[in-house]
Design a protein around this nucleic acid. Structure first.
Length: 258
DNA sequence: ATGGTAGCGCTGCTA
């Protein structure tokens, strides 16, 4: 079972590339972030024509998360576990079950500058999400949260920890939130397969960062141990970040032996 | 060359 995640930075702009990528990467499940669409404008029919059921949680101009699946898509819910659907104002969380695997598509707030109100809100947001996971999920079940965490787990996951984003994405309180998820029972699946540095998933559009390979690994799949132990292969597809009109993120996929 | 882009949507915000 191939489960992928991709911050597409506008589904409208990226649709041709996404359709091309679905055809050659053939994920069973694809989590999307930053669709920047309302639900009414989400192209469910186009995905259905490619064999994918889909669900979307959008607000329009910003954010927006989706899950595509060709192996079933059940129990779709948006938002925090302690939040009624009508209270979901920021479209950053979408849950579903795909062939027995609980999947969460997640777009963590950016945080902007360390110490800013946005940074503090990011930490509160992460804490609320983790507490919800601990209440609703079981570390012994098959569960994977996929998406743009806006946190680089380790210094080897960034080109220069002193120069990125005014300190966000690499600060200790943010990384502590990741470690709390790990303490509960989640595993950064990519790191069970690769130890190397300089394996990035995001490069700023500005200053030729992609071509200078000034990037960060902030797109993650965190899986419970029983699921993570079945992982046989992972790939951050840098090819999909090249060429005309790419997203600033590459897609990542993981093969689980299910 | 000491700044650089991209998307949304129409002015500046977000990343």
């Amino acid at each position: 079972m191939r489960i992928a995640t991709w911050n597409v930075n506008s589904l409208n702009k990226r649709m041709p590339r996404i359709e091309e990528w679905l055809a050659y990467a053939e994920p069973d499940v694809l989590c999307l972030q930053e669709t920047k669409l309302t639900d009414a404008n989400f192209p469910a029919m186009a995905f259905a024509a490619l064999g994918y059921e889909s669900a979307h949680c959008g607000q329009g101009q910003w954010n927006g998360v989706a899950i595509l699946s060709r192996v079933g898509l059940d129990d779709v819910v948006a938002g925090f576990t302690d939040q009624a659907e009508e209270e979901v104002t920021e479209a950053r969380l979408l849950w579903a079950t795909c062939k027995g695997v609980r999947v969460l598509s997640v777009y963590v707030p950016n945080g902007r500058l360390v110490g800013s109100e946005h940074y503090e809100a990011k930490l509160v947001w992460l804490d609320r999400l983790r507490r919800g996971i601990e209440q609703v999920c079981d570390p012994n079940e098959a569960f994977v949260m996929c998406g743009d965490f806006n946190i680089a787990p380790d210094d080897r996951d960034v080109w220069d920890p002193a120069k990125v984003n005014g300190g966000t994405h690499v600060s200790e309180p943010e990384r502590e939130e990741l470690r709390r998820l790990e303490q509960w029972g989640l595993v950064d699946v990519f790191r069970t397969l690769y130890d190397d540095d300089r394996l990035y998933s995001y490069w700023d559009y500005r200053a030729g960062d992609f071509h200078q390979h000034r990037g960060m690994r902030i797109d993650l799949e965190l899986a419970t141990k029983p699921l993570a132990e079945t992982a046989t292969y992972a790939l951050i597809d840098r090819f999909a970040r090249k060429g005309k009109s790419p997203s600033d993120h590459a897609p990542m996929l993981v093969d689980f032996d299910l």
